[in-house]
Design a binder for these strands. Sequence first.
DNA 1: CCGATTACCTGCACGC
DNA 2: TGCGTGCAGGTAATCG
Length: 296
Amino acid sequence: MPELPEVETVRRGLQPVMERSRIEKVVQNRQDLRFPLPEKFAERLADREISFLGRRAKYLVADLDNEEVLVMHLGMSGSFRIEPEDGTTIPGMFYHSRSETKAHDHVIFEMRGKFGRARVVYNDPRRFGFMDLVAREDLATCRHFSKMGIEPTGNELSGEKLAELFDSKSAPLKAALLDQTLVAGLGNIYVCEALWRSGLSPKRKASTITRKGGKSTVRCEVLALHIREVIAEAIEAGGSSLRDHRQTNGELGYFQHRFSAYDREGTDCVKPDCSGVIRRIFQSGRSTFYCPKCQR
DNA sequence: CCGATTACCTGCACGC
DNA sequence: TGCGTGCAGGTAATCG
């Protein structure tokens, strides 16, 4: 399911029932997701309070009230749903009603906080997601984060920074932008969208936009701008809902209605005055959607 | 070192 | 209706 905007949407959905709430119990329905869950996973989480629920790239990071941090990744098909205890409501939000355990409910957090009790259920059909417990002092150097690139939100991502990151890359722009060790959080959808908005071909070698001065500088700045812009807009829209993916409260995100390139093979390019047709090609094993006419 | 490909899983849409 | 095929928002391991 999720790229950065979807993970951020999930984080915001979970925050009211997880942050400053206590984990009363963890029900672990299998030993592994993509990787084995940590030793004594449920035991180590029981009775801990989550002081802060954050996000780094596509990872959720829950700070516990001891020296550990719960790190979670949703893979391709992971999702959370919140089921408040009967009679409990959270102002301004709709949640799932209590249900029987569904197929692929792998981990259930039984939470108690300011809105009473709620179950937070992690469901992941493909099990490409994973969870880990990391000592807080090791967080920056742990295997998940030690080689992680910059956040595409905020001020860290500039044209100058992109130029620096891409200067030695002979890989195509598409692959360079998907490389989480350079910029962390972009996935297939938002890379396609950012490149479309920037008028840059996904096939262009990344290093061809990094020369100092002139067109290259402009291209880098335009790309950095559009990355930040598309990510911000998608977060604002509650992410994209492909297939049956939902937000934690059961509602759909709606950014998918604003795709200009992704999943639009064969449709007319929507850029004003462009007569191109969106094409799909394969790059490093994944679909790329782009307009061959206005993306150069 | 780098870039490209494969592996890991299940579900679903599609064509026959 | 059923069956085979290919594809899906992820990262990690492996291959040249």
